[in-house]
């Protein structure tokens, strides 16, 4: 923790993330209006004291929608990455632990998944499942685990022949115990780093899907669909696209900075070069 504070970029990222989380958690208390309250007498009002970020095409308060949207956007990020990390770690651990045949098959499967464009998988599966926020999380999760698998496998391969592992194995530790007690805890660093970076990507993916009309659907608000609604009026109702655009930018930036900072800090190679 101390080390994070010493790294200004990581610290900045952390502050951003905490602030966004705060906003998301306390959205109901912070919102001045019901995010779905329609007032067709006040359509497309520019920002003012009564509507901090203006109103949208149905007269809804953009500020309140942004606050509630942060919940959806972050939820999509967390759950999707959670799914990807679980799948990725599981397959990577098995491949790296058992090696041989199992490893070959899993890694070829990873190669197959990597050579089918992620976007196609997302699109086809969403078309099949119909877009809802849970399906979007599942789909993003199921199409972004391959990187984690490779990382975990590589980590396991390098740890597998360490003396303490071999010793534990010789003492009759079960495979499950070896993996969960010895190998996994020592591979946490890359998993954590890639999860933090993964959240950033998932938030961006959601906004891209919204652009294509396949993201979180109305009347629920997410940053992605507020931004997409606003893009038609970019030169007129600028508040409709500026705020969600900046929110996505800042949040993704925060996760990236924190992720990179963590990578630097947790990387053993960096320890001995501290000046």
């Amino acid at each position: 923790m101390k080390k994070i504070i010493q790294n200004p970029l990581a610290l900045g990222g952390l502050i951003i993330i905490v602030a966004v989380l705060f906003v998301a958690i306390f959205a109901p208390w912070l919102s001045p209006y019901d995010p779905n309250y329609i007032d067709i007498t006040s359509i497309l009002l520019p920002p003012s004291f009564s509507h901090l970020m203006g109103t949208d095409g149905l007269g809804r308060d953009v500020f309140s929608r942004m606050l509630y949207g942060s919940r959806i956007s972050l939820l999509v990020g967390f759950v999707a990455v959670g799914i990807a990390t679980l799948i990725g770690t599981f397959l990577g651990a098995i491949a790296g632990f058992y090696r041989g045949y199992i490893d070959s098959i899993i890694m070829r499967f990873v190669d197959i998944m990597l050579s089918i464009p992620t976007f196609f998988l997302i699109l086809a599966v969403i078309a099949f499942l119909t877009p809802s926020i849970w399906n979007i999380m599942i789909v993003i999760g199921f199409t972004s685990w391959m990187g984690v698998t490779r990382l975990v496998r590589a980590e396991f391969l390098s740890l597998r022949n360490r003396e303490y592992i071999l010793a534990a194995e010789a003492m009759g530790a079960s495979d499950f115990r070896l993996i969960s007690k010895h190998l996994l805890p020592n591979s946490l660093t890359p998993i954590i780093v890639s999860s933090v970076l993964g959240i950033a990507s998932a938030v961006l993916t959601e906004s891209g899907l919204s652009f294509l009309g396949l993201g979180v659907q109305a009347p629920q608000s997410s940053w992605g669909n507020i931004l997409t609604d606003g893009k038609e009026y970019i030169q007129f109702a600028w508040w409709l696209s500026l705020f969600p655009g900046l929110a996505i930018l800042i949040t993704v930036l925060g996760y990236n900075l924190l992720g990179e900072g963590l990578r630097d800090l947790l990387d053993p190679k960096n320890k001995n070069q501290k000046k």
Partner: peptide
């Protein structure tokens, strides 16, 4: 409840 679905589906 509202559900929005892609055309072919």
């Amino acid at each position: 409840k509202i559900r929005v679905i892609e055309w072919a589906s």
